[in-house]
Design a protein around this nucleic acid. Structure first.
Length: 569
DNA sequence: GCCGTTTTCGGCCCGACTGTTTTCAGTCG
């Protein structure tokens, strides 16, 4: 999400929360939440949509909500919300984030027990006052206490962390199932995952559930049923398992892959066509006759749609594209022919040059580019001019010996605060390529940072901008810069934009890839590997590229070496 | 509050699981 939009997303969600608590029309909060999701997915600050008058064209944002956003953005306040909040303590809303506590229950806790915040709720549970309320009981009270503990330690997880957990659990369950896959946001390759959804088919579901709920690092079993169970692992990550009959596996996989908005759109199309879609299949609405369910492909086809890969299922126009046969032919991992953002133990990597080259050969790459750090990165043992010259010679010798792979010598060169580069032209001119990155002064003013990046782009030696926003998931926000201006200039000058596949970066992300594509930018997929095994992280760069609707044509390192090297000159 | 190849008004995805009920409301995904 563009950091500038965060307050608007919170605003819309807060309105939805209060509307739910006070329990008026049940669809109004849904509308606000949908609008919040739309704003969250925007690649640019909402103020730009207000300025060019396109705000009310955004899905789920109509006249009323766009007026409210305008008021909030221009004045920093919203009279409607101030009014709504009267009599509702701010701290009450946080209780809605607790698992198994929704607006109805929170409302009753507030009105009947005068509970206004998490600590008071915890106390009331410990004193067994909550179980005395009608409709609440002993178990509810225990669940609330558990939810509070979970909430206090919860966070979203990196896609790579999710992969690791899912792969392990799938291996444990595999002997008991016919088919099994990770679904949900993990399968859609979102940059972070909140929990893990696994879907399986088996003739003996209870056996699968028994195995699942006896995995050794379980903190608690949240729910256990014949077809659906949830566990919380000690690591804090929740895993949901759904077991279905094998003949309807496709329908279940489709349903549990989401996204929610994509599913809603599919269901609406089904209704329009006199059909009904649920996790058991696609049915004729009147007769309940089963039309299709065994594979996702078949279900999309029955709905008159081309197959939509999971990475695109975000309700960003993919359904319209599928209906009119205009889906992009997305770039694939096997089309990537080289990796240029690779560190070695010359700077802060942990593998020697030779090992990185060897690892690239095992991936059947045609080329690999070495790009250690420049002098300013003292903490990363950046290469001085002298050491850089030495590495250039060393790589030249290795290159001559190599018959299987082309070895390029480049550098990840710091973009200094004024936008100049961290090596003199004498060095830059000897390098095969330059990835220019910002590693310092992240808190510059937007205008200044934009100028800094534009300066770097205007340098003739620069091949690509590395991790263009500088964000690190869960740790550091993106620095502020005018993305459109930078993208336009990069496209103009033929400077590539990196899609950095390092799991804590994923930079550019999907939304910014889509935005940059509007300016016809070209991209460089890379891993920023600091160890030979990290070259495998190319799959995460691919994930962002595919979620950003990229075709191979827009990705420079899908080119053969001869064409790629022409691009470098 | 949003939205429209049957609608500018009347809909708005749909089923599983849990706990507290004794037939169902609340919550979740």
């Amino acid at each position: 999400m563009d950091p500038a939009n965060e307050p608007v997303v919170s605003l819309l969600n807060e309105i939805a929360d209060i509307l739910e608590l006070t329990g008026s029309d049940r669809f109004r909060p849904i509308a606000y939440r949908r609008a919040a999701r739309t704003v969250e997915a925007l690649p640019k600050p909402i103020s730009e949509y207000i300025r060019d008058g396109t705000i009310s064209e955004l899905p789920g944002i109509g006249e009323a909500i766009s007026q409210k956003i305008k008021e909030f953005v221009t004045t920093g306040r919203l009279a409607y919300l101030d009014n709504l909040k009267k009599g509702i303590p701010e701290s009450l809303l946080e209780l809605l984030k607790l698992q198994d506590l929704g607006p109805k229950k929170v409302g009753r806790l507030f009105f009947e027990l005068k509970i206004t915040n998490m600590d008071e709720l915890e106390k009331a549970c410990l004193e067994h006052r909550v179980q005395k309320l009608k409709g609440f009981g002993e178990k509810t009270e225990q669940k609330i206490l558990q939810s509070i503990r979970f909430y206090r330690g919860s966070r979203r997880f990196l896609l790579s962390e999710g992969d690791e957990v899912a792969e392990r659990i799938i291996e444990i369950l595999r002997p008991h199932v016919s088919r099994i896959d990770a679904a949900g946001s993990l399968r859609r390759r979102k940059e972070t995952v909140g929990d893990i959804d696994i879907i399986a088919s088996s003739p003996r579901p209870s056996e699968v559930m028994d195995r699942f709920t006896s995995i050794d690092d379980i903190e608690t079993i949240i729910a256990k049923g014949e077809t659906k169970s949830s566990i919380l692992l000690k690591s804090g990550i929740q895993v949901d398992l759904r077991v279905v009959e094998d003949n309807c596996y496709g329908a279940a996989l489709l349903y549990f892959t989401g996204s929610k908005d994509h599913n809603v759109q599919l269901r609406n199309i089904s209704i329009d066509k006199g059909m009904k879609l649920n996790e058991y299949g696609l049915f004729r609405r009147e007769s309940e006759e089963l039309l299709s369910c065994s594979t996702e492909q078949e279900i999309y086809a029955t709905l008159g749609l081309d197959y939509i890969v999971p990475e695109l299922r975000e309700a960003r126009g993919e359904i319209e594209a599928a209906a009119s046969r205009r889906l992009p032919k997305l770039v694939e991992l096997k089309q990537v022919r080289g990796d240029l953002h690779v560190h070695t133990n010359w700077s802060d990597g942990s593998s020697p040059l030779e090992e990185m080259i060897e690892a690239a050969k095992q991936l059947h790459y045609e080329y690999i580019g070495i790009s250690d750090h420049s002098p300013s990165e003292k903490i990363a043992n950046g290469l001085s001019v002298e050491r850089m010259k030495e590495q250039i010679k060393r790589i030249a010798r290795l290159r001559d010996k190599e018959s299987e792979i082309h070895v390029l010598c480049g550098s990840e060169v710091d973009i200094l605060p004024d936008g100049s580069l961290d090596y003199p032209d004498e060095i830059l001119s000897q390098l095969d390529f330059v990835i220019a990155s910002v590693h310092s002064r992240f808190n510059m003013e937007k205008q200044e940072m934009t100028k800094r990046l534009l300066n770097a782009i205007s340098n003739d030696y620069v091949t690509a901008i590395g991790h263009p926003t500088g964000r690190q998931l869960g740790r550091r926000e993106a620095y502020s810069f005018d993305a459109d201006t930078v993208f336009r200039e990069a496209a103009e000058k033929g400077v590539l934009l990196e899609i950095n596949g390092s799991p804590e970066r994923l930079d550019l992300n999907d939304a910014l890839v889509m935005e940059a594509s509007k300016f016809k930018c070209k991209f460089l997929l890379s891993t920023d590997a600091h160890h030979r095994t990290s070259l495998l992280n190319m799959k995460y760069a691919i994930a962002m590229a595919r979620r950003g609707w990229l075709e191979a044509e827009a990705v420079a390192n899908t080119l053969s070496f001869s064409r790629f090297s022409k691009l470098l000159n």
